[in-house]
């Protein structure tokens, strides 16, 4: 039996005829951050719900901090924290009352819960708003309070399901900072995200999930290397020339059309290339010969977006074509 961290073996989950998970495996070493990266409907939330005992798996096993999720759910619940996709806060309580409530139910005594709540309000920059009702909070403040609530009992393993979805850039940075701080004090974190840069920023290792399966696993650098080489990024003077440019570039670099990223609205084309700056010259030459003018041109290392595209054939924020259209799933209990 695994002693620490998180171990997931062959999780399968069906909702009716939809197979949400088709055998998910991954492991998170104690004190590290793993990012589950994937588009909507890939199975991220379902995985988190199983690991946090909210949902039973149809088959497969999982251990959190050494406890079996299916057989020792009560022990799992006493070592985890969860911040779900949508803030789970009580609108009619103040920020402080929300935190104390969670702390008391998480087995802190009255005064310890108060002390901890005060400390977390401070950490999350909510001290001033601490005695206001939650219904007066902004989206970013709610998210921060939600995360603070999950930290009331200093969980060994923290699950963050798309913690920054819908946040403005400033709040997102603030949350990143807090998550970085938690990592540095040794909390094991499983984080789901559809943002490549978020996984890149926060996660020690990344598991790419798509269609209910883990399709790649490694550090951000390893995954980028896997895509191989660099990307030439071109902006055309004439936006209508993108498909012509794509044809020319595909031929010049001998790559399939599917590997190019073409944006008709922006008039941009991205081509994966093996070599470095020589590719820039070659790209201009290929287009120039056919009279396609280039407004801007650059070479960059592949981002995780490119990795995702390369692995799955679609970009990360497109939902799976076969995923059921659910209403806003505020709770694991909905949609069943």
């Amino acid at each position: 039996m695994p002693q620490s961290g998180v171990v997931v073996e062959g999780l399968v989950k069906r909702f009716g005829s939809f197979e949400a998970l088709r055998g998910v495996d991954f492991a998170v070493a104690e004190g590290t951050v793993v990012g589950l990266l994937g588009p909507n409907g890939a199975g991220k939330t379902t995985t988190i719900n199983i690991l946090t005992t909210l949902l039973p798996a149809d088959s497969g096993r999982a251990w959190v901090a050494g406890y079996d999720v299916e057989r020792q759910p009560q022990l799992v619940r006493s070592v985890i924290g969860l911040t779900g996709q949508y803030s789970a806060v009580d609108e009619d309580l103040t920020g402080r009352e929300n935190l104390v409530l969670v702390g008391r139910l998480g087995r802190l005594g009255k005064s310890a819960a108060r002390e901890r709540a005060g400390e977390l309000l401070d950490v999350f920059d909510l001290t001033e708003a601490g005695d206001r009702l939650l219904r007066t909070y902004s989206g970013g403040m709610r998210r921060r309070l939600d995360l603070a609530a999950s930290l009331m009992v200093a969980p060994q393993v923290l699950f963050l399901d798309e913690p920054t979805t819908g946040l403005d850039p400033r709040s997102r940075l603030q949350l990143w900072e807090v998550i970085g701080g938690l990592r540095s004090v040794g909390t094991t974190i499983v984080l789901t995200t559809q943002y490549m840069e978020e996984a890149d920023q926060l996660a020690d290792r990344i598991s790419v999930i798509d269609g209910g399966r883990i399709i790649a696993e490694g550090t951000a650098d390893e995954l980028k290397t896997r895509v191989g080489g660099n990307v030439v990024h071109l902006t055309l003077c004439d936006r209508t020339a993108t498909s012509k440019a794509a044809d020319l570039l595909a031929r010049a670099f001998a790559v399939a059309h599917g590997e190019l990223v073409v944006d008709d609205d922006l008039g941009t084309v991205q081509v994966p290339v093996a070599e470095g700056s020589a590719a820039l010259v070659e790209a201009v030459r290929a287009l120039d010969g056919e009279g396609v003018e280039v407004a801007d041109l650059g070479l960059r290392r592949p981002s995780l977006d490119d990795v995702f595209l390369c692995l799955t054939g679609h970009i990360a924020d497109e939902p799976r074509p076969d995923a059921p259209m659910l209403r806003r799933p505020r709770s694991s209990m909905r949609g069943r």
């Binding site: 070592v79 930290l151 009992v153 004090v185």
Partner: peptide, 30 residues
């Protein structure tokens, strides 16, 4: 923004998981 210290003695997993009747009543009250 300050960082988190951990001055509070947090109960262990086993302590938290136990559910004696007194605690169940306490949860209901809360």
């Amino acid at each position: 923004m300050t960082t988190l210290s951990q001055p509070i003695a947090f109960p262990t997993a086993e302590e938290r998981a136990a559910l004696p009747p007194r605690r169940v009543l306490g949860d209901i009250t809360i």
